[in-house]
Nucleic acid binder design. Structure first.
Length: 310
RNA sequence: GCCGAGGUAGCUCAGUCGGUAGAGCAGGGGACUGAAAAUCCCCGUGUCGGCAGUUCAAUUCUGUCCCUCGGCA
């Protein structure tokens, strides 16, 4: 019907069991797994970010896991650019790409594309950060109102991140970010079947708490120590992940282990909640209850008929 | 036992020169186009420790009791 690449997407909140289902699909379709999680890309935190284990990775090729240094930053656009060749290559090998992850923006960017905004030079970003320190966020938002009224109307004056993003695009290109958004054509290189692992927050809680204990037993603290030996900057992108930040605070004596664990749990839980909010409005997802023991088989069945029907 | 400081939202605390109270965090809901495990928005009735007294009116002043934390014994 089209030249779009067929692929299976596995989405859902953290800790709901996406990996298990992904491996079943990979074995039987057969397929290869591609990550769309913004944190599982960090090399120094395989355990804390819950990347697939070496045993799990042995089942089939896994892509875009654990390749980034702690100091490095990945962006939605950067991730999409890395994904395209990986997915094409999987198709060329006659396998089915299985996209697995929890970062809603990355998935959206992958499936719908992003506006084609030229890269912003770092000095522009740095200068705006300095301006912010000098004049305050309210003044920066007013500046955005001049530069890009349409965008400013959509961005809350307290939203530092989006206000600065709007300004940096304007400063770097001379055009409003909303202009780039407006001229973007929504198109997709992929024909995707979206399979969601569904889990309500109360059901997820005990699983998330348990997972933290398991991570610590498996050596999460040692992982953090080793990472700390390589990178001491607590503001480095890799350290800002949930679990990483709390363990770092413990290693630096800012929190007791009990406090760190409690905070780690709360942050994980809040994150899962945000994921649920995001994925809830994602269209065309087939949802499967996370506690169904036959979840992998049922997902496989649906994936099979999706692929056969093309 | 004595002296001091406290007992206010699930937690940490602010406040009311007497007119029944509000922040942060937690929690709930939501947004989301290159930092997204990020960033941000909306949602606050709680015997203001108990009892008594003064007062038109007490969470606020007074007395007393209970509890917590320091210090001295």
């Amino acid at each position: 019907m089209s030249r779009k690449i067929p692929c299976i997407v596995l989405l859902g909140p953290t800790g709901a069991g996406k990996t298990r289902a992904a491996l079943h699909l990979a074995r039987n379709l057969p397929g290869e797994v591609v990550n769309f999680d913004s944190r599982q890309v960090y090399r120094d935190f395989p355990l804390i970010t819950a990347q697939p284990t070496p045993e799990e990775r042995a089942v089939c090729p896994h892509w875009l896991y654990g390749f980034l240094d702690t100091e490095e930053k990945l962006t939605a656009g950067g991730h999409v650019r890395k994904c395209h060749p990986v997915i094409s290559a999987i198709q060329a090998r006659g396998k089915t790409p299985i996209l697995v992850g929890g970062t809603g923006l990355y998935l959206k960017a992958l499936l719908q594309g992003l506006a084609e905004v030229p890269p912003v030079p770092q000095e522009v970003t740095l200068r705006l950060e300095q301006d912010l320190q000098r004049v305050g966020l309210a003044a920066m938002h007013e500046r955005l109102q001049q530069a890009d009224p349409e965008l400013a109307a959509r961005i809350h004056p307290n939203d530092k991140q989006r206000t600065l993003r709007g300004l940096e695009v304007y400063e770097a290109t001379g055009k409003p970010l909303s202009w780039f958004h407006g001229k973007q054509e929504i198109h997709s290189d992929y024909h995707a079947l979206l399979l969601g692992v569904q889990a309500a927050l109360p059901a997820l809680e005990p699983l998330l708490a348990k997972r933290i204990e398991l991570m610590l037993e498996a050596g999460a603290l040692e992982e953090a120590r080793t990472a700390y030996a390589r990178c001491q900057d607590p503001d480095a992108p890799g350290w800002t992940g949930i679990g990483c930040a709390e363990l770092l605070a413990f290693l630096q004596g800012r929190l007791s282990l009990e406090e760190a664990k409690a905070l780690w749990f709360r942050n994980t839980r809040a994150y899962a909640k945000r994921q649920l909010t995001w994925f809830r409005k994602t269209p065309d997802v087939s949802w499967f209850p996370h506690d169904d023991p036959l979840l992998p088989e049922k997902m496989f069945e649906q994936a099979r008929s999706f692929l056969d029907g093309l």
